[in-house]
């Protein structure tokens, strides 16, 4: 802006030096963008891929919910898998991602469910270094390098205090072979067999759940996520024995234990 009262000064450095100054500013700008901006963009892309996949897994969990709880026979979802691959692990695959036992807390008591293996639908991200897994109706996530895991969406287990009923839904995956997919794919799921068990528990009997994670040292260990779910969301109490939790049923009254088993068949990815 011209300040009135002063004459515009035309003395200054030569045009050549001015050119060099401007040119070096431009080069420095480009340099900064390539050095810092570009890696940041790539990192953004990786975390965006991861977040998109988190959402995708929750969408798939909703599909599984529709199949299991709303008696929908078949579901199909198209999704884009970037930065990693999505794989189905059968409920019979080894090492099992987890094992569940539901039984009387008394070791000599009845066993209601023995060694249930859910299998899982797992997204393994190479770029972000995390695994996101849909297992037993829950979406859980763990980093590759360090221990620990987190539950993104909970399964539908519940305790009804009024009728002293504990309802446990177990969802297993089945496919005729191990399928993996990267890129754009369609997940086709169909409902397989379902099982229903209702047990009347006399007053005074304690019920326990035992969750055993993948025992291999570098395996899929989602212990922390499930531990938090059992203790904080389901109000179960750890019994002191490893991986064993007492169900929140009222012991002074007769309780009802309902276990529903669903078999989800993955036709293709």
């Amino acid at each position: 802006m011209v300040v009135r009262g002063f004459s515009l000064a035309e003395r200054g450095v030569s045009e050549a030096i001015g050119f060099i100054l401007i040119f070096s500013i431009v080069i420095a700008g480009i340099g900064l963008v390539t050095l810092y901006g570009y890696p940041m963009l790539l990192k953004q892309q990786t975390s965006a891929n991861e977040r998109i996949m988190e959402k995708n897994m929750i969408v798939l969990q909703n599909d599984v919910k529709s199949l299991a709880y709303k008696t929908v026979p078949y579901k199909e979802t198209s999704l884009k898998i970037d930065g990693g691959s999505l794989t189905v692990y059968n409920s019979t695959s080894t090492p099992a991602v987890s094992r569940l036992d539901i039984r009387d807390c008394d070791p000599s008591g009845d066993e209601y469910i023995g060694a249930f293996q859910s299998g899982d639908l797992r997204y393994s991200s190479e770029s972000a270094g995390t695994d996101i897994s849909l297992q037993n109706g829950a979406v859980v996530m763990r980093p590759h390098a360090e221990p620990g895991s987190v539950m993104l969406a909970e399964p539908r287990w519940f305790y009804d205090a009024q009728t002293n009923t504990m309802v446990i839904n177990l969802i297993g995956f089945n496919s005729s072979y191990t399928i993996a997919r990267a890129g754009i794919g369609t997940v086709q799921m169909a409902m397989g067999e379902t099982g229903y068990t209702r047990v009347d528990i006399p007053a005074g009997n304690l019920l326990c759940v035992v969750y055993t994670p993948d025992p291999t040292p570098e395996g899929q260990n989602y212990q922390v996520a499930w531990d938090n779910y059992f203790i904080n969301s389901m109000k179960m109490t750890p019994t002191g024995t490893d991986h064993e939790y007492r169900l929140p049923t009222d012991v002074t009254n007769p309780a009802i234990l309902v276990i529903k088993k669903y078999d989800v068949i993955i036709k293709s990815l």
Partner: peptide, 13 residues
């Protein structure tokens, strides 16, 4: 009660 827990997964009383 049995139908609602089996078909709809809901505890009814």
């Amino acid at each position: 009660i049995n139908l609602s827990i089996q078909r709809e997964g809901a505890v009814v009383n």
